[in-house]
Write a protein that binds this DNA or RNA. Structure first.
Length: 425
RNA sequence: GGAGGGGUGACCGAGUGGUCGAAGGUGGCGGUCUUGAAAACCGUUGAGCGAAAGCUCCGGGGGUUCGAAUCCCUCCCCCUCCGCCA
């Protein structure tokens, strides 16, 4: 949700943002509804008159008088109000709906572009590994080692699931603990273990609803499986007015994430890259507007620290206006090199939203003790997606004999295991 | 799942048809006192929309009424007891 005052004050700024995003959002309709809505507010005059008369009636009755004439006048007013209100309600409903669907306005420094072709690499770290043997993709490595079972998972659930077994399960669990410990102990985040299901209000708060319902799994009871820990974390202070002293709040959570991936068939579909259920350690911050840029920078570096500790080569890309999701104001993706697949794969996505989500969640803060409440700014980023990290480790640390070395930083979390070997026959 | 009790401002908590946007307290802010602070005392302090007048908001929605925080219906949430269960 954006500031509705912008509709009147800077419509061209919104229009430009929509153009840059290649969005087909009907801004003219929204502006028209806003004007209509404001016109229809004249019903407030009638309400004022009605309130006034009701007060008088009360006074007359208390004084023992006859208020029938006034009652008749109020009745007439009520009829008049009743004919005007439905139109106002209808206009307001459509207005609210469109306000829930309008994309965020990208920051000025976001590169303008059409598609992922126009994203800009702003940083690269590490040397992509060279192998003197044919590097395998992670699914082949995992299956040969008996630690990733895609067929078994298909029997249990269906396509786009995986079962981690033995060292494969340990590896993912080790990554979760390693990432959480690092963010909590070294980077100063507060650990959170939230619900993995959320209600429609929360999904609306993060802007997954109403527009992206098709991406979500929904239960018969009306709950949604969370597509990311961003959903529970961003809704932790729904409806609250925080004190300035409460900010910033830095949260970090491990959760399973569930996505329908409708329409993603065929694309990056092999292995652990695109699954209905994946696992992720997420960082999320509530901050004041002045600190947002700085806080995002730190958040990205916190994610990069994990990749560096695991010695996985990566690059940081600034997403362009056409490739960015509709909610963020700015997004940076971290992509890790997959020597087996021979591609860079997104392993973290770090975004700031400005007040876009805070408006939906109604999460505010008081800049000073007596000041008017302002919306907080929110941001989040994966730190990291653990499934894709498993894949990256398998591909980057594979050895000619088919075994996989365990990164140094992870060994304490793997019971000291230095290398993953196939099970004994 | 069954029975009962509740949801009020940043927080706690009063309020069962009008004078209630809401007592009282806590917290915040300002002041008196003090070298300073604490304590005490005095004052002040909800949010949204609107240029303003004003309108809206006492969990959400609907209804009764001239008038609803207060009455009725419905949904959601919380608590207690029972049942079930990791």
């Amino acid at each position: 949700m954006i500031d509705r005052n912008l509709l009147r004050e800077e419509p061209e700024k919104i229009r430009e943002a929509l153009n840059n995003r290649r969005s087909d959002f009907d801004l003219d309709r929204l502006i028209e509804l806003d004007e209509k809505r404001r016109e229809l507010l004249e019903v407030e005059q009638l309400r004022a008159r009605r309130n006034q008369l009701s007060q008088q009636i009360g006074q007359i009755i208390r004084d023992g008088g006859d208020a029938e004439a006034l009652k008749a006048e109020v009745a007439a007013l009520k009829d008049q109000i009743a004919t005007m209100e439905p139109e106002l309600e209808q206009v307001e409903a459509e207005f609210e709906q469109m306000m829930l669907e309008i994309p965020n306005i990208p920051l000025a420094e976001v590169p303008v572009g059409e598609s992922e072709e126009d994203n800009v690499v702003v940083k690269a770290w590490g040397e992509p590994r060279q192998f003197d043997f044919d590097a395998l993709p992670h699914w082949e490595i995992g299956e040969k080692l008996g630690i990733l079972d895609f067929e078994g998972a298909a029997r249990i659930a269906g396509a786009r699931f995986v079962t981690n077994i033995a060292a494969g399960a340990t590896l993912e669990r080790a990554l979760i603990n390693f990432m959480l410990d690092t963010h909590i102990r070294k980077h100063g985040y507060t650990e959170v273990f939230p619900p993995f299901l959320a209600n429609a209000t929360s999904l609306t708060g993060t802007a997954n609803l109403p527009k992206f319902e098709d991406d979500l799994f929904k239960t018969l009871d009306g709950y949604y499986l969370i597509p990311t820990a961003e959903v529970p974390l961003t809704n932790m202070h729904q409806g609250e007015i925080l004190a300035a002293a409460d900010l910033p709040k830095h949260y970090c959570a491990y959760t399973a994430c569930f996505r329908r991936e409708a329409g993603a068939a065929g694309r990056e579909s092999r292995g652990m890259i695109r699954l209905h259920q994946f696992h992720k350690v997420e960082m999320m911050k509530f901050v004041t507007p002045e600190t947002a840029a700085d806080e995002l920078q730190k958040l990205i570096e916190n994610a990069e620290a994990i990749l560096e500790m695991l010695d996985l080569p990566y690059r940081r890309g600034a997403l362009c206006t056409g490739d960015m999701g509709s909610q963020p104001r700015q997004t940076f993706d971290l992509e890790v090199w997959m020597p087996g697949m021979q591609i860079w794969t997104e392993i973290s996505s770090c975004s700031q939203y400005g007040d876009y989500q805070a408006r939906r969640c109604n999460t505010r803060y008081r800049p000073a003790p007596e000041a008017k409440p302002e919306f907080v700014h929110t941001m989040n980023g994966s730190g990291l997606a653990t499934g894709r990290t498993v894949a990256a480790i398998l591909e980057n640390y594979q050895q000619p004999d088919g075994t996989v070395e365990v990164p140094e930083a992870l060994r304490p979390y793997m019971g000291g295991m230095p290398v993953i070997v196939p099970p004994l026959p």
